[in-house]
Design a protein around this nucleic acid. Structure first.
Ligand SMILES: [Zn+2]
Ligand SMILES: [Zn+2]
Ligand SMILES: [Zn+2]
Ligand SMILES: [Zn+2]
Lengths: 148, 148
DNA sequence: GGGCAAGCGAGACGGTGTCTCACTATGGCC
DNA sequence: GGCCATAGTGAGACACCGTCTCGCTTGCCC
């Protein structure tokens, strides 16, 4: 998620919302810009804090409302790693996505991607007869930095 | 999770707790028995409800306390599918485990397992240099019954 | 049986996420 | 540009899950 592709995503997101008939919105623009420059997922509370410290804050209700809108349009994905709060991150319009290791030592979320893993998921999904719209993989353990 | 292996697990769980120096406990026994007869994961609130309707209820504090104990001993696994509450299910002492499809139509949790998926997870974990203690895979979509 | 610590219950508490409702801003229309 | 309908937003009340405290109960060892 380089700076270039990040602002690309922001424009893409705004275009999608515009095309869907939504008016412009200050809070929504601020959230889109914030998400665009993140390397990985943010919780709703983290978004609230970041915005409060910037020049454009947003109320909690708006944050959840906007995140749900962005999810419905396929612009953002919500992921739950089980630490009492969901996190949100942008979806690459090119279809690329990644998964996460939750480090039990430092608590950080480490992204990774793997084509073989994606193929396995597709395969088992077909074998079971599911029609899947998405999936989530969370590893728990120690990241590279935390293996003393 | 047949009835036979379920009661096996209950005995196994009680033996592990006993060997770890824990005294007997009524609430703990009730929770172990309840988990043993479940085909898939239950939330803490569902456990509370089930027990309240039975002849041996347990307070919420005890439920969470006991579930954490069982987790620490590797008898139970907690999984989060993102609907605002964690769910708990027993771990097969033979090492077998499964993953889940969360059906977006009927809301049910459908278990499945797949050796290829497990291999992929091991492989990517090694490739990234993680030391993992566990993992979670959640598919979202429609189960077989919900594909009109 | 007596004593003590583990096990447990009841309820207060905190944080995340939802809901309502009034206010503000946007874009179409004149 | 000015008006209006309504989408967008903010503030706060609210609900829920999970945590914590603290006093009571129960199992276990002597
Ligand atoms: Zn990420
Ligand atoms: Zn994937
Ligand atoms: Zn299950
Ligand atoms: Zn697995």
């Amino acid at each position: 998620m380089s700076t270039a592709s990040a602002s690309e995503w922001a424009e893409h997101a705004r275009a999608v919302m515009d095309q869907a008939g939504h008016r412009k919105g200050g809070a929504r623009n601020a959230i889109i810009d914030l998400l665009a420059e993140q390397p990985c997922a943010l919780s709703a509370i983290e978004i609230e804090d970041h915005l409060r410290r910037s020049d454009r804050s947003a109320s909690r209700a708006s944050i959840y409302r906007i995140l749900e809108l962005l999810q419905d349009r396929g612009l953002v994905v919500r992921l739950d790693v089980g630490d009492a709060s969901s996190r949100y991150e942008l979806i690459d319009p090119g279809g690329e996505h990644h998964h996460h290791l939750l480090c039990e030592s430092c608590g950080r979320l480490v992204p990774f991607d793997d084509a073989g893993l994606e193929r396995s998921i597709d395969r088992v999904s077909r074998r079971m007869g599911f029609r899947t719209h998405g999936h989530e993989v969370v590893l728990r353990g120690d990241c590279v930095a935390c293996q003393h």
